[in-house]
Design a binder for these strands. Structure first.
Length: 372
DNA sequence: GAGGATGATTGCGG
DNA sequence: CCGCAATCATCCTC
């Protein structure tokens, strides 16, 4: 009988100050002995409870058993239950019903979008593809970067799931443990099912805050990975030698007006295996840097001019016209030069001289002033 | 590791 | 939107 859990009953009686319902129970629970005797009994029980921790385990067990069998125990137990319920209600009122966490929702959404949580869908290949498109890079090592990105993302995903599983398992184990403990304790001290429930929800809250930290750090890891992959500056690769040669060839053979048309840019982009905007960037950078330090580029200009001249000579000796973005300067282009914003001072000194004495459609780059 | 080279970005003006 | 100029961030060479 005493081993039966004594869960709390709801009593509404209010009696002695600070101990609601105590006087009522004192009258009900003892079968009508005199008041002094009852007070004595209660005093004894409380004294025993207070000193129980000073005793050895065996003594305590024996005392516990004696207490459980005490005739006043049910009444005292009920009083304690009532006091506790009132306290718990006031605490619960202040603590419960938190609003749904917006940050947690954001984290969940992000993890879902990145393919970290939720069903596996190729390890965020969509994100990788988007990243590749944004980086604007073309070429062979893109696929390698993709697989690198996917591998790292999948690593993050795996760690995330392992940890999440661990936390869930730990949470369940701990909850079960605490519930069993409370059920066990409810035999000897006042614990309501609601209180157990509340305890469980506290534990869940604690564990979900740990989970939130996990989600947060996972998100951070994904963001870092993503930014590393996306940030073209970080992943800047110099164009290969061939591409640079093609671009330089065009630049120096159009030195009078180094502004490729949209079609020329597209063609150059195709030839160099880069994007049109990369071609634009390249020409933008080149024009500025050339203009800033013409002297430094003199040698390079001469070299490309000579090379183009040789190509042009070969082409003309074969009776064919070169038809590429690197077509040498024509008279039309010279006109463009004379009226363009690209200053003539940007031309190498020897080329300027050649320009001023030019009297026909002959190629600037075939002139002997480029003697090397 | 320092310093130059180089591709990308940003802010501005036309 | 394009080009310029300044700047950033990385690469490359010594």
């Amino acid at each position: 009988m005493d081993d039966q859990p004594r869960l709390m009953h709801s009593h509404t009686g209010v009696g002695m100050a600070g101990h609601p319902g105590l006087s009522q129970h004192m009258q009900e629970g003892t079968g009508g002995t005199d008041g002094d005797g009852r007070k004595q009994d209660i005093g004894d029980i409380l004294q025993q409870i207070m000193t129980i921790t000073d005793q050895s385990l065996d003594e305590a067990q024996a005392r516990k058993h004696a207490l459980n069998c005490h005739r006043m125990k049910p009444a005292l137990f009920n009083v304690l239950c009532e006091i506790k319920e009132k306290t718990v209600l006031s605490i619960r009122g202040a603590q419960e019903e938190e609003p749904p966490d917006a940050q947690l929702m954001r984290l969940d959404n992000m993890l879902l979008a990145e393919g970290v949580s939720g069903p596996e869908k190729g390890g965020g290949s969509a994100a990788a593809a988007a990243a590749a498109a944004a980086s604007g890079g073309a070429g062979a090592d893109n696929s390698a970067e993709h697989s690198d990105y996917r591998a790292k993302l999948s690593q993050i995903r795996q760690i995330y799931h392992t940890e999440l599983e661990k936390y869930e398992q730990a949470c369940n184990e701990f909850t079960t443990h605490v519930m069993n403990l409370l059920r066990e304790q409810s035999r000897t001290r006042p614990i309501s099912p609601k209180e157990i429930e509340r305890m469980v929800s506290i534990i869940h809250r604690k564990f979900s805050s740990i989970q939130m930290q996990l989600k947060q750090s996972t998100c951070e890891a994904v963001m870092i990975l993503r930014s590393r992959f996306l940030d073209a500056r970080r992943k800047r690769r110099n164009f290969n030698k061939q591409a640079t040669e093609i671009l330089n060839e065009y630049f120096y053979s159009h030195l009078s007006n180094p502004y490729p048309s949209e079609e020329a840019k597209e063609e150059l982009a195709k030839k160099c295996a880069i994007t049109v905007s990369q071609v634009s960037n390249w020409f933008g950078n080149k024009r500025i840097r050339y203009k800033k330090n013409i002297g430094k580029f003199q040698e390079e200009a001469n070299m490309y001019a000579a090379r183009t001249a040789v190509n042009a000579a070969n082409a003309s000796s074969h009776g064919s016209q070169a038809n590429s973005p690197s077509t040498p300067n024509s008279a039309g282009e010279t006109e463009a030069l004379l009226s363009s914003d690209w200053p003539a001072a940007c031309l190498p000194a020897n080329l300027c001289m050649t320009l001023s004495s030019l009297d026909g459609p002959s190629s600037l780059l075939c002139l002997p002033s480029f003697s090397l």
